[in-house]
Amino acid sequence: MKLRIPFTKRPPLVSVVRLSGAIGMPGRGSLSDTALAPVFERAFSKGKPAAVALEINSPGGSPVQSSLIGARIRRLAEDKEIPVIAFVEDVAASGGYWLAASADEIWADASSVLGSIGVISAGFGAHVLLARQGVERRVYTAGQSKSMLDPFRPENPEDVERLKGLLNDIHSNFIDHVSQRRGDALSKDEDLFTGEVWLARRAQELGLIDGIGHLMPKLKERYGDKVRIRRYGIKRPLLSRFGARLAQDALGGIEERAEFARFGL
């Protein structure tokens, strides 16, 4: 039992929220706005924190979930008047960088991978395989574009153009978010929004991050050696903790691994 001496001031508290993994992937351990909502509510409210720190290690994922999570971070930060500091580990790329840009400051390890400010859509085509096996694809729709980019039918150039239009619009939203959050710190480099990635020192030169720094040293530098931290994050499902994963979780794990592999991780 701890005895508290009246009128003594406790060291500052910083809430630390871990954002690790792909965003919006299948499976119950994926980062999503629904899963993170109660996590952020506690992090911004419990114990009157002096700041909220984000530990980010994400290769990206769903642009919508990235936007929803980022918007929630900003709403809570502004409502509670609490600064948000992001600390990048291996990677904050694509949607992962969207989350980092939602913070007021971004710090990273010298070997962290950052950027990939772009949008990607991938699929497959199996119509030749079906034809070889004598399988006939039958599709009936009401609406000219209802079967857009059906992987079991030959690719339609009009569908491709329509998809590119959607991707360009999402890319514009991403650029607007980064430009608004990073402001005048951003470089005028032509490759900034092409989907390119950089290590942290180059990312700092481009204005994508504020500097090289790790969580505890930086928090101690700012809030004192006795700074207290309280960690928050998504709890893994009970079955996953014991190694028994459902099929959907296994699929999500494969897709997440593939996302990290894009950056050599």
Rank of each mutant, 00 (worst) to 15 (best):
S102E: 03
A101G: 09
W98C: 10
G125Q: 14
F87H: 08
S116E: 14
E105M: 00
I82H: 08
P83N: 00
G115K: 11
I82R: 04
V84A: 03
K80T: 09
A108Q: 05
G123P: 13
L114K: 03
G125H: 09
V113N: 02
S116G: 11
V84H: 06
A92M: 01
W107T: 07
F87S: 04
S102M: 01
V84D: 07
I117F: 07
D79E: 05
A93W: 05
E105D: 05
A126H: 09
D104R: 02
G95A: 04
V88W: 01
Y97V: 00
A110K: 10
G115A: 13
A92S: 00
S116V: 02
S112V: 08
I120D: 09
V84L: 03
A108M: 08
W107P: 11
K80H: 14
G118P: 07
V91F: 08
E105G: 05
V113R: 10
S121A: 12
I106K: 00
W107E: 10
S94Y: 10
S94D: 15
A103F: 03
W98P: 10
G95Y: 11
I106Q: 01
A126N: 11
V119T: 15
A122K: 15
P83H: 01
I106F: 02
V113Y: 08
D90T: 01
S121I: 05
G115Q: 12
F87W: 12
A126T: 14
G95H: 14
A110M: 07
V88N: 04
G118I: 01
A100E: 03
L99N: 01
Y97S: 00
P83F: 11
V88Y: 04
A122P: 11
A100M: 02
G95S: 15
G95F: 14
V88A: 00
A86Q: 01
V88H: 02
I85L: 03
V113C: 14
A86D: 03
D109Y: 09
F87A: 03
E89P: 14
A126I: 09
G96T: 00
E89A: 14
I117M: 12
V113A: 06
V84F: 11
G95R: 15
G125F: 11
Y97F: 15
I85G: 08
I120R: 14
V113S: 00
D79G: 01
L99K: 10
A93T: 04
V119M: 14
I85D: 04
A122F: 13
W98T: 13
F124H: 07
E89V: 04
F124I: 10
A122T: 15
V119I: 10
A103W: 13
V119E: 15
E105I: 04
D90H: 12
D104T: 06
A126C: 11
I117K: 05
V91D: 04
D90R: 08
S121R: 15
S94F: 13
K80Q: 12
V91K: 04
E89R: 09
W98I: 08
W98N: 13
S94T: 02
D90P: 15
I117R: 01
I82A: 06
A108G: 13
S102Q: 08
K80C: 08
W98F: 12
L114D: 00
G96H: 07
W98Q: 04
A100I: 09
D109A: 03
W98R: 07
A92D: 05
G123Q: 04
D104A: 02
A126W: 08
D79V: 10
G125D: 08
G118C: 07
L99Q: 01
K80P: 14
V113P: 11
A122M: 15
V84G: 03
A86N: 05
A93Q: 06
G118Y: 08
